[in-house]
Amino acid sequence: MKILIAEDEIALQQSIYTYLERDGHVCEVASDYREAACKVDLYDYDVVLLDINLITGSGLDVLKALKDENKRAGVIIISANNSLDDKLEGLDLGADDYITKPFHLAELNSRINAVLRRGKFGGDETLEFNEIRIDTRSRSVYVNDTFITLTKKEYDLLIFFITNKGRVLSKEIIAEHLWGDHSDLMDNFDFIYVHINNLRRKLTVEGAKYIRTAYGSGYKFIED
């Protein structure tokens, strides 16, 4: 997949670049408004990550130009401003998602994948990993064509694992993905442990043993 990272903070831009490239995405970067507008105009991207506050202009203008030209790119807005108004304005202009700094790269990656799924397959939104097949529209999961029943949290967890396969996910990242801001309530992450164990058990029964423990307290979804 081809991704444009329009972010004027070079350190953040490079970190995102490094993270996404490992998944085999083709990444390009833009460090200011002019460069972003130019690249968006010249090339086609599957996903554009757009910082609202680009040094020399607003990311929202890039978004407008993108939509005016009827480009098919999915757009995820990155903002330092956790404001509902900004979010609504961005989504109104046709952005697919909105993420507030600071964010976990795993979270960003999972959002990118969600946008890609929606954009690429149209009505037929399917996510596959070896024998696991997920219909994201009906939210049903099949392992070797056997339907398995998952709770909402287990389902979200599985999607998160598959989109971040091969990466170490700490309990904090997982907790935040599943519960958002509410996750700060947790004094310990035993609840995560319960959900992960249930998911692991349900998958293992069908022969899909991919969830591994990493570094004692983290998790990794990985093929042997």
């Binding site: 903070e9 953040l12 995102i16 490094t18 490992r22 330092a80 600071p102 964010f103």
Partner: peptide
Amino acid sequence: SHEMQTPLAIMQAKIENIINE
């Protein structure tokens, strides 16, 4: 508050890359 978000985002991202690389 606003200016702190970006450095925090950078720290967060770098840590994730260290863990994974």
